[in-house]
């Protein structure tokens, strides 16, 4: 079966495709039919009854015809009721997750996604096994977002302080883009990540390494992995360029002016405090938008990040 992109619809990669695409194409043919019906009728009437003489009058004042009127009331009614049931039936499939699903918690925050696996692994891209139902429990740390995978034809808004559910079952391996479709601020269009669908054994292998990322790595290497995995890269650059947050290049040991907090020496304590309660001392010229990492980062991860920052001279 050809899974590539068609004129109207993106590539096919989930079980929802055979719910949404047939309904979409059916409707496409209905709208082609009605559209060309109207346009052909209008063009034919216009050409046939064009006014040749300036004082030419209408040839007949036909003003009503009950059967015609009832016709174009009942027929559209039947068509739309049919469409309703098609949509309704498909919708129930797309909302009710089958038994035996694998659950992943998704956290959206201003302009980055993070995926937490039950085994404790945390990743910034969603890695799932093929042909197994996956249920995502979505929540947001700040404003509304929306988790949209065009290839899977599925989308769900991400609401702060609640878990919103979304399930899918990938039918083929590959990497499929994920987009945020609910407006959420400056980098709304950069809040992108990907779903990596892999074979079942490759998945369990990956899961094993991802569950304990620090194993066998020096704190600096572990810090580097966390830099991307925890979404720090969304706001802090490591090449010195100013982003939403201060750059980490040459940060350690520098004096920072924190406005009300006065001049602060950037040492281990300050970095730890800025991670766990970021609005305590905000560097001048930056917005206090950093999310709270208290309870999100384990102590080993904080140490790893600090040692990684130290390496960035």
């Amino acid at each position: 079966m050809d899974n590539s992109k068609t004129f109207w619809l993106p590539e096919k990669a989930s079980t929802f495709v055979d719910i949404v695409d047939p309904a979409f194409n059916l409707y496409l043919y209905i709208s082609y039919f009605f559209f060309f019906l109207i346009i052909i009728l209008v063009t034919v009437f216009t050409i046939k009854y064009l006014r040749r003489r300036p004082d030419q009058l209408a040839t007949a004042q036909i003003t009503h015809n009950l059967t015609l009127e009832l016709g174009w009331t009942i027929i559209p009614l039947i068509v739309v009721m049919g469409l309703f049931f098609i949509g309704m039936k498909g919708y129930l499939h797309m909302r009710v997750a089958p038994a035996g699903y694998m659950q992943v918690n998704v956290k959206g925050q201003k302009w980055a996604w993070s995926f937490e696996y039950p085994s404790g692994a945390v990743n910034d891209t969603l890695v799932v096994p093929v042909n197994t139902p996956v249920k995502l429990a979505l929540t947001s740390r700040d404003v509304l977002h929306s988790f949209f995978i065009p290839a899977f034809r599925t989308k769900a808004d991400v609401i702060p302080n609640r878990w919103h559910a979304l399930w899918f079952q990938a039918t083929r391996t590959g990497v499929f883009p994920v987009e945020c479709t609910q407006y959420c601020g400056t980098n709304h269009s950069y809040m992108l990540t990907a779903v990596k669908v892999v074979e079942a054994d490759a998945y369990s292998e990956w899961l094993a390494t991802a569950s304990d990322p620090g194993k066998g790595k020096t704190p600096e290497q572990f810090g580097a992995i966390l830099y991307t995995k925890r979404g720090c890269s969304a706001c802090h650059s490591i090449d010195g360029s100013k982003a939403v947050g201060p750059s980490w290049k040459g940060l350690f040991g520098r004096q920072e002016n924190c406005g009300a907090g006065g001049m602060v020496m950037v040492d281990e304590a300050y970095i730890r405090e800025s991670m766990l309660s970021p609005t305590a001392k905000v560097v001048m010229g930056y917005q206090p938008v950093m999310p709270v990492f208290q309870g999100v980062l384990s102590d080993r991860e904080v140490v790893a990040l600090i040692s990684y920052i130290k390496t960035l001279k």
Partner: peptide, 15 residues
């Protein structure tokens, strides 16, 4: 009208 079809709207919403 296509946006009223529930299953298709999940794909088309906010695009």
């Amino acid at each position: 009208i296509i946006l009223a079809i529930l299953s298709v709207d999940i794909h088309l919403h906010d695009t």
